[in-house]
Design a protein around this nucleic acid. Sequence first.
RNA 1: GCCCAGGUGGCGGAAUUGGUAGACGCGAUAGACUCAAAAUCUAUUGAUGGCAACAUCAUGAGAGUUCGAUUCUCUCCCUGGGCACCA
Length: 946
Amino acid sequence: MKQYDHLKIEGKWQKKWEKEGIYHAKEEGKSKKNKKYYSLVEFPYPSGEGLHVGHPRPYIGMDVVSRKKRMEGYNVLYPIGWDAFGLPTENYAIKTGQDPRVVTKKNTDNFRKQIKSIGISFDWSREINTTDPKYYKWTQWLFLQFLKNDLAYKAKMSINWCPSCKIGLANEEVVNGGCERCGTPVEKREKEQWMLAITKYADRLDKDLDEVDYLPQIKASQRNWIGKSEGAEIEFEIFGHQDKIKVFTTRPDTIFGATYLVLAPEHTLLGGLKDKIENWGEVEQYISKVKKKTEIERTSLDKTKTGIELKGVHAINPATSREIPVWIADYVLATYGTGSIMAVPGHDERDFEFATKYNLDIKYVIAEEAPEGTHPPQAGKPFVYRRAVECYVRNPKDGKFLLLEWKKNTNWKTPITGGIEESEDIVEASKREIYEETGYKNLKFIQHLGTPMHAKFYHPQKDENRIADFYGLFFELENEERDEVSEGEQSKHDVVWVEKDKVASFLTTSPTPFYKIGKNDLSYAKEGILVNSGKFNSLNSEEAKKEMVNFVGGKFKTTFKLRDWVFSRQRYWGEPIPVVHCEKCGIVPLPEKDLPLLLPKVKNYQPTESGESPLALIEKWVNTKCPKCKGPGKRETDTMPNWAGSSWYFLRYTDPKNAKAFADPKKIKYWTPVDWYNGGNEHTTLHLLYSRFWHKFLYDLKLVPTSEPYMKRTSHGLILAEGGEKMSKSKGNVINPNDIVGRYGADSFRLYMMFMGPFEQAIAWSESTIIGSRRFLERVWKIGQRDLSKIKTDPKLEKLLHKTIKKVGEDIENMRFNTAVSAMMVLVNEMDKSEINKSDYKKFLQILSPFAPHLADEMWNALGEKKSINISKWPEYDSKMIKDEEVKIAVQINGKVRAEILVSASDTEEEVKKKALLDENVKKYTEGKEIKKVIYIKGRLINILL
RNA sequence: GCCCAGGUGGCGGAAUUGGUAGACGCGAUAGACUCAAAAUCUAUUGAUGGCAACAUCAUGAGAGUUCGAUUCUCUCCCUGGGCACCA
């Protein structure tokens, strides 16, 4: 073949690979010698639209990894299947009246054909489908294990109801108060729902993240979703009543500032307090108003807090022993913590907003410790005056207080005049403090800065400079001349910081308030030093938290944002929940021998108006016998969410045809945990969390050998349309990979997908750029047509080859596919110009083969190899070849590159120095000047300072 | 508002224990080949000044540390993603 013709090559090899089954993972017994490697990609939802160019990105990425691992002698499992239950198929069925089974079959056939044309080395012999009864039998079986272990329960829940999709949604599926799919505002409905108690695993799901190798942002989003927060529960007595109000807080250190309590409108205590509440009528009205609010109203951006005081009810702050009012308000959630809070408006933004609106007490109990980085107030707006502590600076030479350098905002030039006048007693009090501290009498008040001061301090112990923005009171010594510091200039004086313990004593003994509040002012929510808190004054927040909880008799407690998982869907196209409701026996699980409980055929897939699944309409199916007492029973008509099948699918791949168990324990033990799992960013919270939860549960039942399912998790970026928008059918900008494969070839497509940019990053598709990958492959082809038998490889090229082998290998492991491709391009450009022999060329083909397997196998074959390149041994590089004997180094004069010289790698610093100084260009600069210092970085550069 | 990621030529992007910024690819310009076009090959391609050698400037903005900063520190701006009354 003279010309590179992808159409002739690619189909041929794909057929051959499939026929020989070279990508089939070996049975565990037959490959004991080889280490296993389990690489996994998220199995796709086979939509009717077919594949778009975004789908194959992760498949190709992990394909490159899997192919390399195979060549390195690993027994590789790289499987694929279909996550085929779900709404789009069901909606399509409703619209067209077609059986979802038929639609699914058609879609998966199409997907399979499309994926195969890209030459991914999936083990197709292990293909699974979540809608296959042989598969969902085990999804149902797993559900029954949850039920047996009391982790599945039915509860009356206020659920999120989408009136348009007519489906209950999990909290996770509500986006900004609307339905994740259609955006319709979600309503609340009371409904019996199946729940899975994922919260029982919350702590372990958080903690065990330490054990796994996930990308940092993936760990962060898992932790964020679990929402672990450590704090305390504290009880507040109600004056003249036996009940107590228990609150959860993460800031027990602020309790002296708790000026009122708030209960959620749904709080259970309200009934018991009814007699004491003087304005019960109003309160009742308020509660019913809140209940009517839709989710979207409650979470909308311009939410204003509303509430009502429980007149006649007073709680007692256990720290101050003072009576404080009790309110109910919609900004407190019944479902988090204890459903009630202590409000500290001085140090919590939400409480502050509420207190301001209803004119409640605001008390400040935390002083800001370090005003570094404080934002400047905006011109014309009221602001907080904070007494800064760094302003007391002292010249260590003579012990005098001075302000030595300053900046206004970021320009080094504020005149110190023109500050805001401070009231006289504050100034006097501060003067007195400094006097007591230092014995220094003749202080003159300069100003209290309204704009922040940007000053530079030197810390003699730490020997470092530090820049700080701050507000503060400033003094200088009378009759002392101040340095005039112009822009950019450094002061002559040294400055020390005030030690921390002195700061604290100053703060606590000062007779003046620490904050002056303008009318639209702020709360301070960060940690700091306690003030106005009795004997706890001058402690820092961290210490105070511990002591305060003991002081008020509270209990340390950890809470989570995570809620139990709503596991019911009132839909048709999902796994039926295998239980029977019996009037005598209650909820009875179906015996194992009756699994799978088949999804019956129906005429109409439309959910019912009452919100029941369409299954509820099939009386013949619903009415059954109770498996326990054989009396009449009714089947559960809810189905499972589509997260169910995907929570354990990777286990089924290890033994996909097993009819006796979800998988043979021996096979699970051999293959799991998954070594590397790559998927989309959109699944790094929910799917990942759910499947980790299932796995931990199975681990506790001793059904799987590890507590974590995936050792390593990465994610790939989205492929966007050419304009940078998301690809979608409605915008008509979807690109079908098969068009590209037809025109440029699967290998060019694969190479381009890997080359176009960093794998984790979203990137816009660009058709014009793919030509570069095609040209590269044509060049590879052309070089292969030379007579390679006689020629010796140029030494320079040989070195480059070994460097490239090293780099490509490392880049693949680190998912830097783009730079791996670029390194191979550099190599081929060099090959074009020089001579290469057959064996070196074959090595290059081998490192190219994970990226362009068809072309590599074709040329490998043409060079006389009988077996596929994909099962050949990954080439090793010669570490001797990688070291350069001669290196080019840069010569810098005063930090600027002025020349380049060639030196031998063995040259000493002295020799290099000599060579550098002899260089003509260098001479030009050094002539007649004194050399102060020479800095030499081996193999990189030499810097000559004049 | 909070958390995470990012900001480098006309474009996608390289460059991390701080050490020659712009690898590789696309596009563009000129030339070779051709009756012509495509393809291919060769050269140039960050900006400004200069006939040139070369010089100066340049990695979102400003500052700091350093002989030397895309890389480290601080402040600010912008973009993308996630969370959002979670006490």
